[in-house]
Amino acid sequence: MKFPCRIDKFVSHINELPRSKVKILIKKGEVSINGIVTKKSDVQITREDSIELSGKQLKYLGKRYFMLNKPQGYVCANSDELHPTVFDLLDEPNLKDFHVAGRLDIDTTGLVLITNDGDWSHQITSPKKQKYKTYLVETKEIITEEALEQLRHGVALHNEKQLTRPAQAQAVDKYALRLSICEGKYHQVKRMLAAVSNHVVELHREKISDIELDSKLSAGEYRPLTEHEINIINAK
């Protein structure tokens, strides 16, 4: 939310109420600015003003950032008619302006970053920013050195004209590898493994840039990012 802004817009945003209903409440004298009741919906307020609705102070929480350990079965969308979303796992106010910075497929688990800061998330999602996402990949077939070398140099995805950007690929055991990519093409990791004649059995994101999934978070749990973690994205 940008300041200064209209009082009706602010109250509507904080309480997730229709603007029309907020205007009625304002006319009834339910809204005050710095202790003074206002009945005008178009009054401009600043971030420093104290706003109350029916005697309850409304607080703008500003930019917020969370990491979530995504379980299987949840989609990275604000709403979905068929499946639960990652936002169903967050017990936080005013989430309508939030989005996922780098989505995961419904069957993929691990690190998801959620924020209402569009500029910050752009640093993560734009291929030009070279923010690597690291995945632990379990595969159906044995991981060969030849396949690793292909992934490191870039592979041709089905229906794509250009090769993928060079990835960081390291074998973990016979049927698992750690793969880091700086792109976000549709089903990219699965398609990359298909391009080297393999198949993804399980996929788990461990890291975005230098932000690692907190090992203390069980599947479905989340926490706010630390200031250091937030600044990692802005610094690179």
Rank of each mutant, 00 (worst) to 15 (best):
P4A: 15
I7R: 11
F10G: 14
S12R: 06
I14D: 07
I14W: 01
N15C: 10
P18G: 01
P18T: 04
P18V: 00
R19M: 01
S20Y: 04
K23T: 10
I24G: 01
L25V: 09
K27R: 09
K28Q: 09
V31Q: 01
S32M: 05
I33G: 03
I33E: 08
N34H: 15
N34A: 11
T38R: 10
K40Y: 06
S41P: 04
V43K: 09
Q44C: 07
I45V: 14
I45Y: 12
T46G: 14
R47Y: 09
R47F: 14
R47D: 08
L53R: 07
L53G: 03
K56S: 06
Q57V: 04
L58P: 04
K59V: 06
G62P: 13
M67V: 08
Q72K: 13
G73Q: 15
N78A: 09
N78M: 12
S79N: 07
D80C: 00
L82N: 06
H83R: 11
P84G: 02
T85M: 00
T85Q: 00
F87K: 04
E92Q: 15
E92N: 12
N94F: 02
F98C: 07
R103H: 14
R103K: 13
L104S: 07
D105A: 11
T108N: 14
T109H: 10
T109V: 04
G110F: 02
L113N: 10
N116L: 02
D119L: 02
D119Q: 10
S121Y: 00
H122M: 01
T125Y: 11
P127F: 00
Q130M: 11
T134D: 03
E138K: 11
K140M: 01
E141Y: 09
I142K: 11
I142T: 09
E146P: 01
A147N: 08
E149N: 09
L151H: 05
L151P: 01
R152W: 08
K161L: 04
L163H: 15
R165H: 11
Q168L: 05
V172R: 09
K174Q: 09
R178N: 01
I181Y: 02
C182H: 13
K190T: 00
R191N: 04
R191E: 12
L193H: 12
A195S: 15
A195F: 15
H199F: 14
H199E: 11
H199D: 08
H199L: 05
V200M: 04
L203E: 01
R205C: 03
R205G: 11
K207M: 06
I208F: 00
S209M: 12
S209K: 07
L213P: 00
L213A: 07
L213H: 12
L217T: 03
A219G: 05
L225F: 11
E227S: 14
E227G: 10
E227M: 13
N231C: 03
I233A: 02
I233H: 04
A235N: 15
K236T: 13
K236F: 13
